[in-house]
Design a protein around this nucleic acid. Structure first.
Lengths: 343, 343
DNA sequence: CGGTTAACAGAAACCGGTTTCAGGCACCAT
DNA sequence: ATGGTGCCTGAAACCGGTTTCTGTTAACCG
């Protein structure tokens, strides 16, 4: 297996030059005469020489790889994240290592282990402990993706709380609703934690007492279906509106609610967060908050790549803006461009 | 950055032994006296020595990494794939590199590039060209994931065609339907191609003329919504059943159909493939085919790891079984455990 | 024409490990 | 005493590159 067994020294011998010259030619560094360059390139071409990654990495003290650590892989959010990260890493000739911790006990150790194989790491907020994050940052450039880490570790995120406050305010003020329930686990991720805080803040702005407890569930579509069983299955009175921590949950709730014969938004208002592709396509279309997930991850990758190239240069945190997207599921009339009013 | 600057030679000096001994102790290879081992371990502990990955990899001619190449990252299918792969790689102390080709022009080159950074690669069927696959297999152990490659390259997949034939036969025979439309692009992936073939085969079994063209769409949920627009938007007469290439499409079609006021399965029958978590939770629950996606990827990882450990040992292709899951969306009565019949 | 300088090439050191190989030593059987 | 046998150990070679440092050569200048 492998014709790629041809090394610098062989090429050097075949071209009748020194290894230094071969290295210079293959890297385009230093001064090489036209004659030498031609001879070397000829040999490289002829024998199909490709410099070995490990040798090069060892000498250069650089792996040419970036790491991405996240808790689990569920739904469009994480796939967008990965793709955004990848889209920035690949052009920089950096390969992407992933680590999916599943919130295992040894997540911290595995992240530390990864640090020894890559040049920089993006960690999704809430995936590893804060001490581990700090130790990680001592080894390689680190950025926290979607969330905030310790002061010294830069992060890339969106303005979750204000966005959620705006959305909640819309329901409370413009639609006059009072009995809202928030679905999502604030302890699960910084994102959700901030959204929960923003949700409560909207109540306080109006001198209302906010709900004290969210409906704690994971973030997948089927958790949303589960939520409808809890909320609409009798027992407690049904809420007026379900404010979901992300679109997937909202879609699940929507499917569950429609499945029970409820009309949305007449009988139940539902909102999401993310503006996933499906949000605009379901009926009624979902009122949500658009966040630039892909761009978020791309920005993280860029920050890391910069930090790798220019060690020492402090790099700042970034907060990307969100956009409140009003559609039909909150009770607003159908948007003009969609045509047709109401149901 | 990094206290991890301590090397074998330093430890050797500090412990008053040779580097060979340090290497032997840290790897547990060869014979080392108790006294030496103690001294070395003490030094390792004291100075926090961790062998450098690159040095080790270079010397051992092994990267300690596995690659996973796929076209794009959409929906639960790919996330399950990644997690299954990862779950097998991590315990083997192999890191996971991913490459998301997006079907770019240079996919082949990028895959070959990856081959020089990992010990083995799993390629999702249809992601790179066949010649590239062959060249790849010359460099490292390769397995095709979900699909079949050239004879010489082993693959891991499921029995797509028979499963889809069984499902289609169920609609044709048990429900007496005739006007079915298949949604999915057979040119997009071997999986879909096989399912499309199985779909047509069911017609032929009954001496019926199968549809000649599928509705060619991508595989995401919103493509399913798109499908309803094409199929139910007037123009052509609506079909009796929509046979989707995967569950995501089916969920999209379901959402789209319900949004148009259709009753499922009374007005329109819908089926999926995969048995994603949501399939059982929507109403009506989705008739589909369960395939062990996670196990598929795990098996691929195992095959590769074995091939890496025992080079030369031929390794065979694997076909995992599927299971036909009958629920309500095909027109069958609600399952007993679910309780409640019909709507 | 002698001396300075710039351009270029190669020998050797280096990155951080693993592994081969030869030798030292203790122990045992002749 | 001698030779053989195992067990340990360390020097040195090796993995495949990059980079420093030294030296040669030719061009240029006064």
């Amino acid at each position: 297996m492998g014709n790629s067994r041809v090394t610098v020294r062989e090429i050097a011998r075949l071209a009748g030059v020194s290894v230094a010259t071969v290295s210079r030619v293959s890297n385009g560094t230093g001064q090489v005469s036209e004659e030498m360059r031609r001879r070397v390139l000829e040999a490289i071409e002829k024998y199909g020489y490709r410099p070995d990654h490990l040798g090069r990495a060892l000498a250069a003290r650089r792996h040419g790889a970036l790491g991405l650590v996240f808790p689990g892989l569920s739904g469009p959010y994480f796939t967008e994240l990965i793709q955004g990260f990848e889209s920035e890493a690949v052009p920089a000739r950096a390969s992407v290592h992933i680590l999916c911790t599943h919130l295992r006990e040894d997540s911290d150790d595995q992240a530390l282990e990864m640090a020894r194989r890559v040049d920089g790491i993006a960690v999704v907020g809430g995936t590893i402990t804060e001490p581990a994050l700090l130790r990680l940052a001592e080894l390689v450039p680190v950025v926290v993706l979607a969330g905030r880490g310790p002061e010294t570790v830069p992060s890339v995120g969106v303005d979750n709380a204000p966005a959620m406050t705006m959305l909640t305010r819309h329901l409370l003020v413009d639609h006059g609703l009072r009995d809202l329930v928030f679905v999502g686990n604030p302890d699960g991720s910084p994102d959700v934690s901030q959204r929960w805080a923003g949700f409560q803040a909207a109540y306080r702005e109006l001198d209302l007492a906010p709900p004290t407890e969210p409906l704690r569930l994971a973030m997948q579509q089927h958790d949303g279906v589960l939520a409808t069983e809890r909320l609409l299955g009798g027992g407690t009175p049904a809420p007026q509106a379900v404010v979901c921590a992300n679109d997937e949950l909202a879609l699940g709730v929507l499917v569950g609610a429609l499945g029970r014969g409820l009309r949305v938004p007449e009988d139940l208002v539902i909102t999401g967060f993310d503006d996933a592709p499906m949000a605009a396509l379901v009926s009624p279309p979902l009122t949500t908050v658009r966040q630039p997930v892909r761009e978020l991850a791309a920005e993280a990758a860029r920050l890391i790549l910069n930090a790798v190239d220019a060690p020492g240069a402090a790099f700042d945190s970034v907060v990307l803006p969100t956009e409140f997207v009003v559609r039909r599921s909150c009770g607003c009339p159908a948007e003009p461009p969609t045509g047709g009013t109401g149901k």
